[in-house]
Simulated scan of single mutants.
Amino acid sequence: MASQSKFTGNPNAHDASIFSTGMTGTCLCGSISVTITDSELFTRPRGHLCHCTNCRKVSGSYVASNLAIEKEKIEVQDPKGKLKKYRDMETGSGKCVERCFCEECGSPIMSIPEIFPAMFVLKMGIFPRIPEPECEAFALHRHAWQGTHGDMTQFEIVRGGRKLR
């Protein structure tokens, strides 16, 4: 039986103050690292939970934790050339979203949406901590059993669109 010390993924073990200028995360095998340089990362709610089918499939879960952020705040290191891209054309906008993942371990890394050319959408599960999300997208696609996340804004479909609450 594995000892408790081998489980290093506890986000509560990392005080948010140590990420005052940014943070780095890696895929499961460590081949790809992503560094966010942003001094506001934990100063307010950031990012969103997405319930769209494509994000659910990419995350392997009932919801994806995403952070849309300016490309210039991100550095991706892939020294072994393991970052692969899937061109997803089955999107609500009809525009391509490149879904990036590690070919070695399968970890989702980020999405590159054609509709927002200056942004990356990071998959927050690769990071040691996740900022408190500011909203939920595709809230109409939530499962009835999910419950709610406090008083977080829920958009019916896209962020900035019609609100459910």
Rank of each mutant, 00 (worst) to 15 (best):
M1D: 14
Q4M: 12
F7P: 01
T8I: 14
T8P: 00
N12K: 12
H14S: 10
H14K: 10
H14W: 11
H14C: 08
A16L: 11
A16S: 14
A16C: 05
S17N: 11
S17Q: 10
S17G: 00
F19P: 04
S20M: 04
T21H: 14
G22D: 06
M23H: 07
T24Y: 09
T24H: 08
G25F: 08
G25N: 06
C27A: 02
L28W: 08
I32V: 14
I32L: 05
I32W: 08
S33E: 12
S33K: 10
V34F: 09
T35A: 10
I36P: 11
T37S: 15
T37P: 06
S39P: 13
S39W: 01
S39G: 02
E40W: 04
E40Y: 08
L41W: 05
L41E: 10
F42M: 04
R44Q: 15
P45C: 06
P45L: 07
P45I: 01
H48L: 10
H48W: 09
H51F: 11
C52H: 07
C52K: 00
T53S: 04
N54G: 13
R56A: 02
K57I: 02
K57S: 01
G60K: 02
S61C: 04
Y62I: 13
A64R: 03
S65W: 10
S65K: 10
S65F: 12
N66Y: 08
L67P: 08
A68S: 15
Q77C: 07
Q77I: 07
D78N: 04
D78E: 05
K80S: 07
K80P: 00
K80W: 00
K82Y: 11
K82T: 12
Y86E: 00
R87F: 07
R87G: 05
D88W: 02
D88F: 00
D88P: 00
E90N: 13
T91M: 00
S93D: 11
S93H: 11
S93R: 04
G94E: 06
G94W: 02
K95S: 13
K95F: 12
K95D: 09
K95C: 08
C96I: 09
E98L: 11
E98F: 09
E98Y: 14
R99Q: 11
R99W: 01
R99T: 01
C100A: 15
F101N: 05
F101E: 05
E103I: 03
E103Y: 03
E104L: 09
M110D: 04
S111A: 15
P113A: 11
E114M: 06
I115A: 15
I115W: 03
P117Q: 09
A118K: 13
F120G: 00
F120D: 15
V121K: 01
M124Q: 13
M124N: 12
G125Y: 06
P128H: 07
P128L: 04
R129W: 02
R129L: 12
P133W: 09
C135T: 01
A137D: 09
A139N: 01
L140C: 13
H143M: 08
A144P: 04
W145D: 13
W145R: 02
T148W: 08
T148D: 15
H149R: 08
G150H: 07
G150T: 10
M152T: 15
T153P: 00
T153C: 01
T153I: 14
E156N: 12
E156H: 10
I157A: 10
I157G: 03
V158T: 14
R159I: 15
R162N: 07
R165E: 15
